[in-house]
Amino acid sequence: MVTQVENPILEVHDLTVSYQSKPVLWNVDFSLPSGSLTGIIGPNGAGKSTLIKSIMGLTEKNSGYIKLFDKPLSKVRKKVSYVPQRESVDWNFPTSVFDIVLMGRYGHLGLFKRPKQADKEFALECLRDVGMEEFKDRQISQLSGGQQQRVFLARALAQNADIYFMDEPFVGVDAATEAAIIELLKKMRNQGKTVIVVHHDLQSVKKYFDWVILINMRLIASGPTETTFTKDTLQEAYGGKLTLLSQISDLLSKEDIPTRQG
């Protein structure tokens, strides 16, 4: 059940990805409309994070292509923002909240250039948007999980992009932060931005997202939440992995057979 859209802001075409010759995504093929708030849903190990990592060019793909704004990522980087999982960085790094948010401006600055006053003011504004202004001089090692996530979000806002990819922004954050984040994401969507979120709490899907992508090593469904997020598709995504698919995947890994070069 895949709803393809006209003039998509994101087009993933026949994407296959594997880690050390073990395939984790098979022939994923979908497109997203502009201005949607999309949830990528699926069980553990379904390849949700891998999907947005390969969209961001962080993992190599075996086959397929990805287009954003009808162009390859390298042509539109300034319009695209990525929020990695909170645990992917060392929060003991000796630096302040403000300096992290300022990193969001680096893409626009390019190499060699230092942030200007305007960049600093913009970063501060983003920090205000996530309700962390008074924490600006805090060392990041002193933040709680929810505050860390807000800082990452502020950094993404500072990129001033048109499409945002977020990897599990609700994991390990308190209820107040979760509410504040979803509020912010909805506001961003209403301003015309496109937001794609890796998410695994099924209960909140209908409340949060207007578009869903269900995956479990392969694409199960993609489309508007109302018509796509149904008992049948959920059953398919969560009713156990396709045994044959994961067995073949293990086999490929053991035998070290390259899956589809190039």
Binding site: R77, V80, T95, M103, L111, F112, R114, P115
Partner: peptide, 23 residues
């Protein structure tokens, strides 16, 4: 001195540095 901001970013969050197109 010239590449200070780039080095710090690569040290803190290499994936983010990749996604904004830093070499």
């Amino acid at each position: 001195t010239i590449l200070y901001k780039e080095f710090i970013l690569v040290s803190f969050d290499v994936n983010f540095a990749k996604t904004i197109g830093f070499p």
